[in-house]
């Protein structure tokens, strides 16, 4: 069935994204476009509920609600991965900030004790 291939490819793509890709402006653009498409798709499907079932049938699923569920799971996984990446980036930035602070403080202390030892400087 077509849906099996689509879902497997989607999951593999998410796994690949988790392991390899670093977040970039391009990914952000893709994510925003997906949200935009989801809104349009949502409105269309709300207006003509039969359409969802027709699409589901076309890819080998019996009911439109099932297609919706699968889509939801994939979207959720993508969200989890994206959010994980963002929090990793944030914590790295946090570490760098804390390190700069620590080193600046240490440098200051060293400078003070050096001047204390050589008051002529």
């Amino acid at each position: 069935m077509l849906i099996q291939i689509i879902l497997i490819v989607a999951l593999l793509a998410i796994a690949f994204y988790l392991i390899r890709a670093t977040p970039s402006a391009r990914h952000l653009a893709v994510r925003r476009m997906l949200v935009f498409l989801a809104v349009i798709g949502g409105v269309v499907v709300i207006l003509s509920p039969g359409l969802l079932t027709s699409v589901a049938n076309a890819v080998g699923i019996g009911r439109g609600t099932d297609l919706l569920l699968y889509g939801f799971i994939v979207a959720f996984l993508l969200y989890v991965v994206t959010d994980f990446k963002r929090s990793t980036q944030l914590s790295r930035a946090n570490t760098q900030l804390a390190r700069k602070l620590t080193l600046a403080e240490a440098h200051l202390q060293d400078e003070i004790s050096r001047r204390g030892a050589n008051p002529d400087d």
Binding site: N94, T95, A98, R99, L101, T102, L103, E105, A106
Partner: peptide
Amino acid sequence: VLTHPLNL
């Protein structure tokens, strides 16, 4: 001793 402001 250098001190991190929080546990990293």
